[in-house]
């Protein structure tokens, strides 16, 4: 399936993909971030339950230096 992550299309060779698995695949495990899918926030507590769909648009954000 194809998923847009922070504006960039990525392909995953899987039929079922949970957010938990995705996070491992894109090497974000252990980092601090939040995810929005198609405009809706996916709670951290649901990462192992929610699955991704082909064409999902994700925004993955973190805290950076700012004023």
């Amino acid at each position: 399936m194809k998923i847009s992550i922070n504006g960039k299309m990525q392909s995953f060779d899987k039929d079922v993909l949970t957010f938990e698995t995705l996070i491992k695949e894109i090497n974000l495990e252990g980092r601090r971030f939040a995810i929005e899918r198609n405009g809706e926030i996916i709670p951290k507590s649901q990462f192992n339950k929610y699955t991704l769909n082909d064409g999902d648009k994700l925004e993955i954000i973190g805290a950076v230096g700012g004023g």
Binding site: I5, N6, G7, K8, I26, N27, L28, E29, G30, R31, R32, F33, E59, I60, I61, G62, A63, V64, G65, G66, G67
Partner: peptide, 20 residues
């Protein structure tokens, strides 16, 4: 302390330090 919210850098080395 104020912080900004921005896209995380996908593919960045996991061990690279972050503000947090």
């Amino acid at each position: 302390v104020t912080v900004a919210i921005r896209r995380v850098n996908i593919g960045q080395d996991k061990n690279q330090p972050s503000l947090i």
